[in-house]
Amino acid sequence: MGALIGFFVRLYTMVFGALERLTNGWFLGLAARFIFAAVLLQYFWNSAKIKIDGSIMNIFTPGAGAYAQILPKMTEAVSYDISQIAFFPYGLIVLLGTWAEFILPALVVLGLFTRFASLGMIVFICVMTYVDVTGHGVDIGILFSTTPDKQIISVRLLWIFLLLVPTLKGPGVVSLDWLFGRSYRRREMYYD
């Protein structure tokens, strides 16, 4: 019996050791970025487009939709007349939040400044969840819930976990970070 168990342990170790060696350094980062692009990129960009009223020309002047999403209670208090909201700090918060929702997902997908962008997206999701609860009154549910309308927190945690992979492991070989890093390393070797 011990020989049979030993055989399966060796087989297991051999198969999964080979799989780990084959995917080391490139697969996890690429897969996480691909899944982020497939599942979340459009979600965040659609949300960002609402903030600029659908026109890239409004990238420096987010509309009432941006204020309503980011500062819901304050925007409602001024009857959605955003000219009554001070630029500093509130307008600046809305402007930077709008830019972050466009720029950070693009950087993650491209694999450029990936660790920074992924960490930024994690912070963005945490802030978004906080605003959903405190500003919009959303019931984000509870962990381990089997009721679909009580699973928002579980979904957001999956998003965060997905972004933890490139934050901790990097973007992988198929990325602009790797390409620029390779170019930099070659240049450094040339000058040494």
Rank of each mutant, 00 (worst) to 15 (best):
G2Y: 09
I5G: 03
F7M: 02
R10Q: 00
R10G: 04
Y12C: 08
T13C: 03
F16E: 02
A18Q: 13
A18Y: 12
L19R: 06
L19Y: 07
L19A: 14
L22M: 14
N24D: 15
N24L: 13
G25L: 09
G25N: 10
A32L: 02
R33A: 09
F36H: 02
A37E: 07
L41G: 00
Q42D: 06
Y43H: 14
Y43Q: 12
W45K: 14
N46F: 02
N46H: 09
K49W: 13
I50P: 08
S55P: 01
S55M: 04
I56L: 15
I56H: 13
N58L: 00
T61K: 10
G63C: 09
G63A: 04
A64V: 15
A68M: 05
A68N: 13
I70V: 14
E76T: 02
E76L: 11
S83R: 13
S83E: 15
S83Q: 15
F88T: 01
F88S: 09
Y90W: 14
Y90N: 13
G91N: 08
L92V: 05
L92W: 04
L95F: 10
L96P: 01
G97E: 05
T98L: 04
A100W: 08
V108C: 04
V108E: 04
L110H: 10
G111D: 06
G111C: 06
G111L: 08
R115E: 00
G120I: 00
G120D: 00
I122P: 12
I122E: 04
I122L: 05
V127W: 02
T129F: 02
Y130T: 06
Y130H: 12
V131N: 11
D132W: 01
G137E: 12
V138E: 10
D139I: 03
I140C: 01
I140D: 06
G141I: 06
L143I: 15
L143E: 11
F144T: 08
S145I: 00
T147V: 14
T147C: 05
P148R: 09
K150S: 05
S154W: 01
V155N: 12
R156A: 08
L157R: 04
L157D: 01
L157G: 01
F161Q: 13
F161H: 11
L162S: 08
L164W: 05
L164K: 11
L164T: 04
V165H: 08
T167E: 03
K169I: 00
G170E: 00
V173Q: 12
S175Y: 14
F180R: 08
G181Q: 03
R182D: 10
S183M: 14
S183P: 00
R186K: 09
R187P: 03
R187Y: 09
E188I: 11
M189C: 07
